[in-house]
C-alpha cells in the first residue's frame, strides 16, 4: 500500500531528482518544498512532484525560519511521510518540523520501504557497526535522507503540477545572517573516482603525505583519508574523509595506507571491489578486510612501491 501524501524538502537542487523518485515510489500524491526560483519547481514536477511549495530564498536568508510554516502545511494536508535532504540546513529543518509535529526525525536513512502499512527505515548505528531497522509509528514520519538512496527517474517535461509561491518572510526572531563566506579549498567528488588512495594516522607529518600523492598520481587515483587526518590534523579537507560520518564510496580499488581499519572507516569502502592495505602492524584490523596486504613500514615500502609501479 502506498502512503497517501508524501512530501520532500530540499535546499539542494541536485537532490530533487532522487527525492522526487523516492517520494513517487512510496506515495500517491507527492509534494515538494523548495527554496528558490520558478524553474526548479518545474524540474521537481518533471521529476515526479504533483505539487510544489516554493519558498523565497535570497542571498542571506535563513530558510530554516520557514520550519514552523512548513510544519503547518504538513499538518493541514496530513502528510504521512516527510523526507528532508540531509544537508546541514535540511537537518535543522527536519528537527524543527519534527518537534512541531511532536515526533522524532529519523536520521540518515539508507533504505526506506513500506511493510504492513508502516514506513520502515534503515540506518547505520554504533558508528557503522550495525544497521538498524525501525518501524515508524507516528502519523507523520519525518526523516532525513542523503543522495544515493533512491534512483532518479527520467524527467517527464509534460507532467503537470501545482506551484504555490510563498512570499512571506521567514520567521527568524533572534537570528541574523551577517555574512556568507564561500568555503576555502577545492571541492572533490570522491564518489566518482574509480581508484582511491586513503591515508591514515600512520603518516607522522603532513609533508609525508607527498608519498601518498606520488602513489595516487602514479595510479591515477584520488586521494582520501581517515577522519583523524581531516578533523584532528586538518591535513586534508573534510570532504576527503571516508567512513560512516564521511564519504561512502564504491571504487574499484581502495588503497588504505597507515589506516588501522576501524569499522567507522571501513563502512565507507566496504563496497570497494578490491581493498589493498599497507600497515606496519600485522594485527591491524585492516588485514582482515583486505584482498591484498603488505605488512611493512610505509616510510620504507611506499616509495619503493610507487617507483616500481611507475617502471
Amino acid at each position: 500500500m502506498a502512503i497517501k501524501n508524501v512530501w520532500f524538502i530540499t535546499d539542494d537542487l541536485s537532490a530533487i531528482g532522487e527525492l522526487a523518485a523516492g517520494a513517487r515510489k512510496l506515495g500517491e500524491h507527492v509534494t515538494a518544498v523548495l527554496f528558490s526560483e520558478q524553474d526548479q519547481a518545474k524540474e521537481a514536477i518533471a521529476c515526479g512532484a504533483d505539487q510544489v511549495y516554493l519558498f523565497k530564498k535570497t542571498e542571506g536568508s535563513f530558510i530554516e525560519g520557514y520550519s514552523k510554516e512548513i510544519a503547518g502545511l504538513i499538518r493541514a494536508e496530513q502528510a504521512g511521510l516527510v523526507m528532508v535532504y540531509s544537508s546541514a540546513s535540511g537537518r535543522l529543518i527536519a528537527g524543527r518540523i519534527a518537534s512541531q509535529l511532536e515526533t522524532s526525525a529519523i536520521s540518515n536513512v539508507s533504505d526506506l520501504y513500506i511493510e504492513d502499512d508502516h514506513v520502515v527505515a534503515e540506518h547505520m548505528v554504533y558508528g557503522g557497526l550495525a544497521l538498524r531497522k525501525e518501524k515508524a509509528l507516528s502519523d507523520t514520519v519525518v526523516l532525513t535522507v542523503g543522495l544515493g538512496v533512491f534512483e532518479a527517474n527520467a524527467k517527464d517535461e509534460s507532467r503537470e503540477g501545482k506551484v504555490t509561491e510563498i512570499t512571506g518572510e521567514a520567521e527568524n526572531a533572534g537570528i541574523k545572517v551577517i555574512e556568507i563566506r564561500p568555503k576555502q579549498g577545492e571541492t572533490v567528488n570522491l564518489k566518482v573516482a574509480k581508484k582511491v588512495v586513503g591515508v591514515g594516522r600512520g603518516f607522522a607529518n603532513e609533508e609525508d603525505l607527498k608519498m601518498a600523492e606520488d602513489l595516487a598520481s602514479a595510479t591515477g587515483a584520488e586521494l582520501a583519508c581517515s577522519r583523524p587526518i581531516a578533523e584532528g590534523e586538518k591535513w586534508m579537507g573534510k570532504e576527503r574523509y571516508v567512513g560512516v560520518s564521511g564519504a561512502v564510496l564504491k571504487p574499484d580499488v581502495y588503497v588504505a595506507i597507515g589506516i588501522s581499519g576501524q569499522i567507522q572507516h571501513m563502512v565507507g569502502v566496504n563496497d570497494a571491489k578490491t581493498i589493498v592495505a599497507i600497515n606496519k602492524d600485522k594485527n591491524a584490523p585492516i588485514f582482515k578486510q583486505a584482498d591484498i596486504g603488505l605488512v611493512g613500514d610505509l616510510y620504507t615500502v611506499l616509495p619503493k612501491i610507487t617507483e616500481k609501479l611507475k617502471a
Binding site: S99, S104, A105, S107
Partner: peptide, 8 residues
C-alpha cells in the same frame, strides 16, 4: 548519531 537532539 541522529544529530537531532539539539535541533529538537
Amino acid at each position: 548519531y541522529a544529530q537531532q537532539t539539539g535541533n529538537q
